[in-house]
């Protein structure tokens, strides 16, 4: 039985698990902040996958570079997302995602 961490399958399985938990969280939870966190989890899952495959084909570092950029974008996204949540909170003084239904009328 070869040791656990030498095959990319384990990382793919882990990333899939993490990604589904993130997606699940995003769809189920009503709290906008938790939803944002779940998005972060999903992003991290994909980063893990990128790095794992880069490890599988080590000829160039594109996987890691790409992961690096994903982190940069995630940071920007989190900042703006939180700003929007603040604006939304000020408008509807609640973070419950169901209240954001002005467009519905």
């Amino acid at each position: 039985m070869t040791p656990l961490s030498y095959h990319v399958q384990e990382y793919v399985l882990l990333a899939a698990l993490l990604f589904s938990i993130g997606g699940l969280g995003f769809l189920i939870r009503r709290n906008v902040l938790i939803q944002l966190m779940c998005v972060e989890i999903m992003l991290n899952a994909t980063n893990l996958l990128l790095v794992a495959f880069n490890r599988l084909y080590p000829s160039s570092m594109t996987g890691q570079v790409f992961a690096f950029f994903v982190i940069a974008v995630a940071a920007a996204e989190a900042a703006v997302g939180l700003a929007i949540i603040l604006g939304f909170y000020r408008l509807r003084n609640s973070v419950h995602s169901d209240d954001a239904d002005i467009l519905r009328h």
């Binding site: 990382y11 790095v51 490890r55 982190i71 995630a74 940071a75 989190a78």
Partner: peptide
């Protein structure tokens, strides 16, 4: 770290853990 991505691990800890979660 396990996948030999030391730079990324550092960036992850600094940017993600350090900034984004704190922002949350």
């Amino acid at each position: 770290l396990k996948l030999h991505a030391q730079f990324l691990a550092a960036v992850q800890v600094i940017v993600y853990a350090g900034a984004v979660v704190i922002l949350f």
